[in-house]
């Protein structure tokens, strides 16, 4: 499954990231590496952004970007 499918309040673990280019790099800069735990704070259908808590800080990304991150739900 992908990160955009995770409901608010749920956690997940990153399996892989399929975004290339500048966006993929930016997520890597933010620590979106395989194995990293992420908590979804806000995620409403069709409403950007998706708010996440990763490695102790908040990051907001678009649904389209969250769709490029494969995760397993915790």
């Amino acid at each position: 499954m992908t990160m955009d499918e995770i409901r608010p309040g749920r956690g997940c673990r990153i399996v892989r990231q399929n975004l290339g280019g500048a966006t993929g790099q930016r997520l890597m800069d933010m620590g979106f590496m395989p194995g990293t735990k992420v908590e979804v704070i806000r995620n409403a259908p069709l409403v950007d952004p998706v708010d996440l808590l990763i490695r102790g800080y908040h990051v907001s990304i678009r649904h389209a970007e969250a769709k490029g991150v494969e995760v397993e739900q915790l």
Binding site: G21, A22, Q25, R26, M28, D29, M30
Partner: peptide, 8 residues
């Protein structure tokens, strides 16, 4: 900058 790539 968050990193030192040539994206920005």
């Amino acid at each position: 900058t968050y990193s030192l790539t040539s994206y920005s």
